[in-house]
Design a binder for these strands. Structure first.
Lengths: 209, 209
DNA sequence: CAAATTTTTGACCGGTTGGACAAACGTTAG
DNA sequence: CTAACGTTTGTCCAACCGGTCAAAAATTTG
């Protein structure tokens, strides 16, 4: 267990926020090893030793960032609710995830970076908390299938596909923009994506008989 | 333009292959900046100066790796053919991409790493060669839609969704395994994924009326 | 064989990086 | 004022990292 939360002055709280904001910017753009304390300190508008007064090690910043991220990151899935129309629930889950990709791309990339490197720092959480949550929601989805509310398929892979398709617009943003080009790669791309994903997940590609 | 290909001895060709194989392993696991020449040299079974005799700079290794990757990486999309049944064509494209995620996960992660960092080294290729290819195939898909062979939707986002869902099994492998757990996270996960994706892309989630 | 060429290595270098530290600075309370 | 406490900075260090270099070892060529 971790000891009780340390007492902090007002300045400490504020400066720590500034540092975390700066670190999110730097880490998500360069990865953990690709980022230097100096870069974060400069982005936070303070000297390196000053930064190290608030976070004693580079890893502490990353760890704090990751802990906060995970809470908000899984919130949409937690909201997936047994009551309410199944198709509507799934549709709004997809929409919420896509909105997060649009509004919090740095968080998405930070997470993607961590997973890509083999999740050295958060593997236990993936196998514990995350797995539990997904299993729980998979059971909910299975219930919908048994009730004939949605087509029978694999709930786990369904969740993976929602993660993959939505986060793609944050993690692979450069590629998406490059391929769509100047005209279609503007702000409208998220609405296009939302329309497409809704159709894909509800109706698939078969032409309407 | 680049000068003509340099003449190379047999040993040079072989050792360069060994180095590239080792570098793929190291780069895909740690990213470019997270990898050291020493790590690659050790994985290749040679000393650092010896490795630098074959590739004069760390970036040269990465560049060579990336050039090779892109050819094989886009091969499945190039094969997407106008002749033949549209749904069958798309189904086998998805299958091929999923097989690549299964058989070449390191290549997938190397690519993902590059894109995540903003594609500093391959952006021109994304905006040029890749965009051209995707636009071309999007036109093919649009033809299928006009002919009523598949449902009308956005071809570009359709391609994105295929990339996202298939590459997810390589790039986010740790997470997939963690969530599926010991029993379902084994070799069978790719077959489960194939079945799921086929159903998703063809029929969507609406229950059969 | 010997000469020429290619390959391998140990030693080294300059720059960067994460982090330590003590001293200085600022603020607040008595 | 002064003492106590929190904050900031300049300096420094050891480890690491990409890359050089000269010289040795191995291989190829004449």
């Amino acid at each position: 267990m971790e000891g009780s939360a340390p007492r902090r002055t007002r300045i400490q709280q504020e400066k720590r926020e500034v540092i975390l904001e700066a670190a999110l910017e730097v880490f998500s753009a360069n990865g953990f090893r690709g980022s230097t304390i100096d870069q974060i300190a400069e982005a936070a508008g303070m000297s390196k030793p000053n930064l190290l007064y608030y976070f004693r090690r580079k890893e502490d910043i990353h760890e704090t960032l990751m802990q906060r991220l995970l809470d908000t990151w899984l919130a949409p899935l937690r909201e997936l609710d047994d009551i309410g129309d199944p198709l509507t629930e799934l549709r709004s889950y997809i929409r919420r995830k896509l909105e997060m990709a649009r509004d919090f791309p740095r968080e998405s990339r930070l997470f993607a970076n961590e997973i890509l490197q083999g999740a050295p720092r958060i593997k236990p959480m993936l196998e514990g908390e995350l797995k539990t949550l997904v299993d729980e929601k998979a059971a909910v989805i299975k219930g919908w299938m048994r009730a004939g509310k949605i087509a029978r398929t694999d709930p786990w892979h369904l969740i993976f596909s929602i993660w993959a398709t939505t986060q793609h617009y944050a993690d692979f943003d450069v590629q998406v923009r490059a391929v769509l080009g100047a005209d279609r790669g503007g702000d409208g791309r998220f609405e296009d994506a939302a329309r497409f994903l809704e159709q894909l997940f509800l109706d698939g590609l078969k032409p309407k008989g």
